[in-house]
Simulated scan of single mutants.
Amino acid sequence: MKFKIQALILLLSPLWFAAAGQAFDPEDVQQLLTTNECPGCDLRGADLGGAQLAGANLFEADLGEAFLRQADLRSANLQRANLYNADLGGASMAAANLFNANLHNANLQRADLREADLGQAFLARADLRRADLSDANLFQANLSQTFMEESELIGANLQSAFLFQSNLERADLTGANLIAADLRGANFYEADLTGANLIAAALADTNIDRAQLSNTNLAGVLFQGTTLGPFICIIERGVNCVLETDVAAPAFVPEEPFTPREDSVGN
Rank of each mutant, 00 (worst) to 15 (best):
I9M: 07
I9V: 09
L10N: 09
L10K: 11
L12I: 12
P14S: 01
W16N: 06
W16E: 06
A18T: 04
A20C: 06
G21I: 04
G21H: 05
G21S: 04
Q22H: 04
F24A: 15
F24E: 14
P26T: 08
E27K: 13
V29I: 12
T35K: 12
N36M: 07
N36G: 12
E37F: 05
C41Y: 08
D42C: 05
L43A: 12
G45A: 03
D47P: 13
L48E: 14
L48P: 15
Q52R: 11
L58H: 05
L58P: 05
E60C: 04
D62S: 11
D62R: 11
G64M: 10
E65L: 03
A66L: 02
R69K: 10
R69F: 05
Q70F: 08
Q70D: 11
Q70G: 00
A71F: 12
L73T: 01
R74Q: 13
Q79W: 09
Q79P: 02
R80G: 00
A81H: 02
D87R: 11
L88Q: 06
S92T: 02
S92K: 15
A101P: 14
N107K: 10
D112V: 06
L113W: 11
R114Q: 15
E115L: 07
E115C: 02
A116T: 10
A116V: 06
D117H: 12
L118F: 15
G119W: 11
Q120Y: 15
L123E: 12
A126Y: 09
A131M: 11
A131N: 12
D132G: 14
L133V: 08
L133T: 10
D135P: 01
L138H: 09
Q140G: 01
N142Q: 09
L143N: 11
E149V: 13
E150T: 07
S151P: 01
E152N: 14
G155C: 01
G155Q: 00
N157I: 02
Q159K: 05
Q159F: 02
S160V: 04
A161L: 03
F162R: 03
F162A: 00
L163S: 04
F164N: 04
Q165P: 02
N167E: 15
L168E: 07
A171K: 06
T174F: 09
T174I: 05
G175C: 07
D182R: 10
L183Y: 04
R184G: 00
R184F: 00
G185K: 05
G185T: 05
A186W: 10
A186L: 02
N187K: 09
A191H: 06
L193G: 14
T194K: 15
N197S: 10
A200Q: 13
L203T: 04
L203M: 14
N207E: 12
N207I: 12
R210N: 08
Q212P: 00
S214T: 11
S214G: 01
N215K: 04
T216E: 03
T216W: 06
N217C: 01
F223N: 00
T226Y: 02
T226K: 02
L228P: 00
F231N: 00
I232S: 03
I232Y: 03
C233Q: 00
I234R: 04
R237M: 04
G238W: 01
V239Q: 06
N240G: 00
C241N: 00
C241L: 01
L243K: 09
E244M: 08
E244T: 09
V247K: 10
V247Y: 07
A248I: 09
E255K: 13
P257L: 14
P257Q: 14
F258I: 02
F258S: 06
T259R: 11
R261K: 07
V265T: 13
G266E: 13
N267G: 07
